[in-house]
């Protein structure tokens, strides 16, 4: 079996947000405009959280990319009344957009607040729509969405491997955020494969799970050598 996972090295993340734009470009994420963004309705699937450490002048800033953690025990899944979000056999929390009726219960129950909602139908004034990725559906209004681990790329990678009659090799499939990261702070692969890069990163003594004490068993591993990952006293 495959368990897709991602590892993010926070010590390498500069917070440049190239991944955020790459994600929007890859996944046809709509931009909601100033008014909607002010209402708190920006739709980034991936956000760079920013926290401060210390006081001026000995102040430091920490960045933490937060995306859907693709939990092994996902709080979002059981609360959906229509199975619009479910766990697929490869460890993804899949979203079935056509099934979603928009109760937003899943988003409330997500401890990472990574789910975003289409409050209105997406608008891509022509010819901006020329850029839309044909492999990814444009979600209608009233539907929940979130990071898919670039499931279309996973599928394309598997198709390519199948065509060449081989197994998917580690590194064949790269998510949009991973690909754009100038510091290579993100790696992606199969957590079940002990030789994959992501598994090796996950073995690091610096590895931890976000909100790990909730035991959501995330598919995203963070690496940090800093003390600040420890819970507050």
């Amino acid at each position: 079996m495959t368990r897709w996972g991602m590892a993010i090295d926070l010590d390498r993340c500069t917070g440049c947000e190239a991944c955020v734009v790459a994600c929007a470009a890859e996944n046809n994420i709509q931009t909601v405009g100033e008014e909607q963004a002010r209402e708190g309705r920006a739709m980034h699937w991936l956000r760079i959280e920013r926290y401060y450490e210390g006081e001026f002048p000995n102040v430091r800033t920490r960045f933490m990319p937060v995306l859907c953690q693709q939990c092994g025990a996902a709080p979002c899944e059981p609360v959906c009344p229509v199975y619009a979000t479910y766990r697929n056999p490869e460890g993804l929390n899949a979203m079935v957009y056509s099934r979603c009726i928009g109760t937003r219960f899943c988003a409330n129950n997500c401890p990472y607040t990574v789910r975003v909602f289409n409050w209105f139908d997406a608008e891509f004034p022509a010819p901006l729509d020329s850029q839309l990725n044909p492999d990814v559906s444009v979600r209608p209004g009233g539907v929940m969405e979130k990071c898919t681990f670039c499931v279309q790329r996973i599928q394309a990678g598997k198709d390519e491997a199948a065509q060449e009659e081989r197994d998917v090799a580690d590194g064949d499939i790269r998510t949009a955020c991973q690909q754009s990261c100038p510091t290579k702070a993100i790696t992606f692969g199969d957590l079940e494969d002990p030789d994959s890069e992501v598994s090796k990163w996950a073995e690091s003594p610096r590895a931890f799970s976000l909100l790990g004490d909730l035991d959501t068993r995330p598919g995203v591993v963070y690496l940090s050598g800093s003390e600040w990952r420890e819970p507050a006293e």
Partner: peptide, 8 residues
């Protein structure tokens, strides 16, 4: 930062 900590 409430990141919590748990070995992965």
């Amino acid at each position: 930062i409430p990141v919590g900590w748990a070995p992965h």
